[in-house]
Write a protein that binds this DNA or RNA. Structure first.
Lengths: 141, 141
DNA sequence: TACCTAAATGATAATAATAATCATTATAGG
DNA sequence: CCTATAATGATTATTATTATCATTTAGGTA
């Protein structure tokens, strides 16, 4: 009952892709790692168990994880793209501090609902959304 | 009573910046142009009246307009950053079509309010926000 | 008006993230 | 075992944005 791996397996099969040692290592490391990770960070982690892994391979496989629904790309300001695990946690939005660049995860059910209604009212079929509130966090203001 | 120019003037003075022929042309062209414009597009427009204008100058001045509150940077997917005029129009959010990449502007007062509350509840001082709903537009679904 | 300081410009190079290329290797089905 | 082709890893290309820097120019001041 590992939901993430099931999704991954199904996607691999469905698309006619293949299993490789590297791909497995990347998936495992990603799932065990921090919730938000960059390609570079994951590359460095995977290198511990797969010393010959290439950067491009990590990059490609993270994109694969996005494609199959295991990860979300989050791009904040000028920061590098981060890959966030989607499995095992609800969708959430971000409060982003303009000073320290850190972000807080938040969720408001009412906003979620209103967003769907807003899309519907515009003949739009929503698939995902991104809400980012920029400002100053407690420490920085 | 040109609000945009007033804001611009005030900012220029406050920061000890200078007026230049090029800067003036960029501002005028920006204000007269499409609501969402890229650096490159504006560069090409300004070149009509200022044939020797440099790309970097347009880039820098668009950043200046963002800094003084005349424009918002909007970055959608892999598209180039676009600069959107803020004056003379309310803040709005975007419904972005994943297929045709076009976007629709929308606004929901209730969402706006809830966002402020959400920030407040997290000891966060909101300054601006970005809500993007991705999906399929009427034509593309 | 001439002068002076620093802002602005324009050309160019640097940076950096991401994507593309391609020869080689390896997977998985027959 | 064979074969088709997906995947890898090294490298290069691409592309937007930023930095650099010599030169020009704005605008306050003597």
């Amino acid at each position: 009952m590992n939901k993430a791996k099931d999704i991954f397996e199904r996607y691999i099969k469905e698309k006619g892709l293949r299993h490789t040692r590297q791909r497995q290592a990347i998936l495992d490391t990603f799932l065990a790692a921090d919730k938000h990770i960059t390609v570079e960070e994951l590359f460095n982690l995977v290198r511990r168990t797969e010393p010959d892994i290439g950067y491009a391979t990590v990059d490609r496989n993270l994109k694969l994880m996005s494609a199959c629904g295991l990860a979300d790309e989050i791009k904040i300001g000028k920061q590098k793209t981060r890959y966030e695990q989607k499995i095992g946690q609800e969708h959430h939005d971000h409060l982003i501090c303009l000073k320290c660049e850190r972000f807080i995860e938040v969720r408001d059910e009412r906003i979620e609902k209103l967003q769907d209604k807003l899309a519907e009212a515009n003949d739009f079929l929503p698939q995902k959304h991104k809400l980012e509130i920029y400002g100053l966090c407690k420490k920085c203001r």
